[in-house]
Write a protein that binds this DNA or RNA. Sequence first.
DNA 1: TAAGATAATTAGCTGTCCCTAACTTTGCAA
DNA 2: TTGCAAAGTTAGGGACAGCTAATTATCTTA
Lengths: 151, 151
Amino acid sequence: MSLPSTQLSASLEDYLEAIYILSRSGKAARSKDIAEHLQVARSSVTGALRLLADKRMVHYKPYGYITLTDHGRQLAGRIVGRHNVLDAFFCEVLGIEPDTAQEAACLAEHAIGSQIAGRLRLYLEFLDARKQAGCDVSSAFRDYCRRAEDG
Amino acid sequence: MSLPSTQLSASLEDYLEAIYILSRSGKAARSKDIAEHLQVARSSVTGALRLLADKRMVHYKPYGYITLTDHGRQLAGRIVGRHNVLDAFFCEVLGIEPDTAQEAACLAEHAIGSQIAGRLRLYLEFLDARKQAGCDVSSAFRDYCRRAEDG
DNA sequence: TAAGATAATTAGCTGTCCCTAACTTTGCAA
DNA sequence: TTGCAAAGTTAGGGACAGCTAATTATCTTA
C-alpha cells in the first residue's frame, strides 16, 4: 500500500529538501546536482522525481527543468525548518560538534512533527530571552558537562 | 549492499527493542507477542528474527524460544535508553503530550547516536539539579509557552 | 494418544529505494 | 552543422520490509 499522497517517506523528504536548498542557493536544481547533494546515483533521482511529481510536489518533465510546486515549496520549507531547529538545539544547547549535530538533524527531521518542532523553536527562543536577562542556561550546562565528563 | 553486521536498520532496532521489552516484562518473547507489540504480521517477525540471528543479536531456532544474545541485549538496552531520554525530554522539558512524545521518541531513537543521547541525559540531570537549587527552568518554560501560544 | 487449536513458518507478491550498465537526449564547440 | 561530451532516462537487479494464504509444527485436552 502506498503512502497517502500528502505524506512523503523520509527518502522523498530528503529529495524535496535538496531541491529546495539547491533552488535557493543558485539557479534551478538539475538532476545531477540533486544526485551529488544526496550522494546517490542519477538514476535514483529520476525515480524520486517521478514519485514527487505524482504527489504534486514538483513540476517535472523528462529532460526538463525541475521546480517545486507551491505545495512542495511549503512542505520543503517546513522540513528545512525542522532540520534547522534540531541542528541549533544540538549545537547551541547540547554543545554537540557541528558535524555530528548536522548528521543527527538530517535523520531526526523526519521523526518529529510540527508540534515538537514548534516547541523546540520556542524553547530556543526562551533560552535566548533568559540569556538576555542575564541567565545563560546553555553556558551553565557547558560547565556542568565539563565537570561531568572530563572530571 | 547489506548493512555491516554490527549496524541495524531502524526496523530491526524496533524488533530488538520489542524483544527486550517483552523479555523484561514477563517470560520469553514469543513470535506472536512481538507481532502484536509491533503491529505487524507474524510472518514479518519470522523474517526479522532470521536477520537478527544472522547478526548475532538473538538466539533463534525455528519453532524455538527467542532470547537475546549478550550483544543483542546490550544494544537493545542502548536503544531503549535513547527512547526513554527522548521521551522524557519531549514530555518534561518541552511539555509535549505523552502520546505525541512517545510516538516521536519511537522514530527519533533511530536517529540520534550515543553522544547526543548522553548529552541529553546529562541535560535532564542538569535541569533537575537546578530545580533542586530553586531554579525550575522547565516550569518557567511552561509559562513562556502559555504566553506565546494562548496569547 | 489422537484431534483440534494455536503458533510459526514458507511461498509468493508488492512496493520502496538504491545500484550499474546501456541507451537517448541535449547542448556546445569546432 | 555535425559530432562529441555531459546530462538524463531506461532496463534490470538486489536488499529490505511488509502483506496474505497455505502449510507445518507444537501443545493441550478430552
